[in-house]
Design a protein around this nucleic acid. Structure first.
Lengths: 335, 335
DNA sequence: CTTCGTCAGTGTTACGTATAACGCCGGTCC
DNA sequence: GGACCGGCGTTATACGTAACACTGACGAAG
């Protein structure tokens, strides 16, 4: 059996009694009016019998492009980016694009080495957060880039897609105000990132608009324990805040834990709000009141934007609506 | 500016005043004793100046292989597979292999379409769980395959790498026995999978060995709410079990929630154990006593096995040790 | 003075595919 | 009856890289 190596289109041609060019025409579905139906069937039969699969490398070389895009996400530690990926993957599949996932080691980590060699293998990049060096490497390679969760107009991105963080922040503030909260502390993610900056700015602005004092801010490492520690500091202040605005559900979960450890009840003694609506939000007790971001839609819209860019169509920046999921961690202000 | 398309090695050659072959020698680091240092420098300078990057497609075509492996994971919803990926990615990077991630839509979902065309682009696959059809498609394409969390000797895998599930199960049972538990219920994942079968078999065997009755088993969808519902059923039985052995941390988290809703304290009234040691385990209150699996090491060992297979070296099946993380959800049996 | 070996390179080819450019043949139209 | 044309197919070539087989030239060895 000299079946050592996979069959080529030439093998198929020989078996079907046609030329290699004809095989290609049939496989690329460009044979209408050029190849007789009988031969088309013959080629298809030969393909099946030999178990032929086109060599992607050769295709890419010829065509000057792989139908492959890269999705860069900061981490796989929570389900948010899993949902982003699902949304993007669905759109990619519909459009015959391969989507490859690259979890950037550190939210905003060092230049991912994969890019160096992968850039030649990719047609475009959809990135959620990325080190500046990696960004410039990408734009240097001239790769089309669409950014998620990133400030419009900055960075060499062809387009951006964002959930409406500012609106989400306002929804939270309004909700807390309806419950009568006036002393609101801010558990801020200890990350230099546009999304978090928007939360802080909008929060301050909205409170000011309502004639309330600027929120006391506690910086927190972006994790449950980070939230726990920051909340312990925030709740130790006098007078104690009646509500904690957390940049993220992880922080909010940590904050709830901290409150309980300090003998405080949630939401009777202190209200807590999150952001993102992770799976975690409905896992903890009580379930988190949080801003629900359209993760799937974010991925889908991002990939659609990338497709548009690949097709040479200009793509406007997109903002997606968010909603407030009111659950069990918010209630009337005490006292 | 005729800089329309990326520079090729021939462009580099022209600029450096050498032949294309020489460029290739320099870039592949095969020039020792073949190219004079002066020209090597000239080539390197030209590469820098033009921003030349080798065309991967052409390389793959020539070499008959991409240095790329695929990691198939069931979902991105929890952090376990994020850690598996991290471990595998580290080893891959050390060995100049690209690692691409494919989250299979459904734990054991439909044949992933990506394989159809991607198989030609891959050198090997490291899979955690996979639909039977996808498996056969893979072996049909003759792709080297290493399986994680899969029964050794089954499936057309060149090797398997597993955490020692049986040992973990025994650790849990022994721990519960030391606390005096005798009525243990089993919250079993509603998934046909070898790992879960091992848990059930080992649990039954160990209890039998200790002269205890077979555990009452409640099937649960593999999620927090699934665990919640199953635990409600299990805890409604009379006499009530004093401990719940959960196949997974998600189920355990749900079980704790159910217990609290039924007015039971954990661990005073009922002990709960998990499996996997997800981030979730230390997030919930109280923190879960659970079997800690070496996720990073699992990914790393899996990728090492794949590398061995790619090198044509036979690779034995591997079993990795586990440990019991004793935390807050287990205590003395009541009564 | 020939012969040989080594260094320093270059010419050429092959990888597998997609497609532009061309050829053939039977039927139509003037 | 010859020019033309449309349906069918084929030949030839290019994509960018890696590496084999070769060529001179220059010392050294015989």
């Amino acid at each position: 059996m000299p079946d050592a190596r996979p069959p080529t289109s030439r093998d198929v041609a020989e078996r079907a009694g046609v030329s290699q060019a004809t095989v290609s025409l049939v496989l690329r579905d460009r044979w209408r009016g050029r190849v007789s139906p009988a031969r088309v069937d013959a080629v298809r039969a030969a393909v099946r019998e030999l178990g032929y699969r086109p060599n992607q490398a050769a295709r890419s070389l010829r065509l000057g492009g792989t139908r492959t895009a890269l999705l860069v996400v900061p981490a796989l530690a929570n389900d948010f980016f899993g949902r982003v990926h699902a949304g993007a993957a669905a759109v990619a599949a519909e459009n015959g694009l391969h989507l490859v996932l690259y979890p950037s080691p550190e939210g905003v980590g060092p230049a991912p080495d994969p890019f160096a060699s992968a850039s030649a293998t990719l047609d475009g990049v959809l990135a959620s957060s990325m080190a500046a060096e990696a960004l410039s490497a990408l734009s240097g390679a001239g790769l089309p880039l669409v950014m998620l969760d990133s400030e419009p107009g900055r960075a060499p991105a062809a387009a951006t897609v964002n959930p409406d963080i500012a609106a989400g922040t306002r929804l939270v503030v309004d909700h807390l105000r309806e419950w009568g909260h006036r002393r609101i502390a801010h558990l801020a993610a200890d990350v230099e990132s546009w999304t978090f900056a928007v939360r802080a700015a909008t929060l301050a602005e909205r409170l000011d608009l309502d004639g309330l004092p600027a929120p006391r801010t506690e910086r927190a490492e972006l994790s449950v324990v980070g939230g726990l520690r920051a909340a312990e500091r925030a709740l130790a202040a006098a007078p104690r805040p009646t509500a904690l605005f957390c940049d993220d559900d992880l922080l909010a979960a940590g904050a709830c834990k901290a409150a309980r450890r300090m003998g405080l009840r949630v939401p009777e003694d202190v209200s807590v709000t999150g952001f993102d609506d992770l799976a975690l939000a409905t896992t903890v007790e009580p379930e988190l009141t949080t801003v629900s971001l359209p993760a799937e839609e974010l991925g889908a819209a991002g990939l659609r934007a990338l497709l548009a860019v690949l097709d040479g169509r200009a793509q406007p920046d997109t903002v997606l609506p968010v909603r407030l999921a009111v659950r069990g961690t918010t209630g009337p202000a005490p006292g």
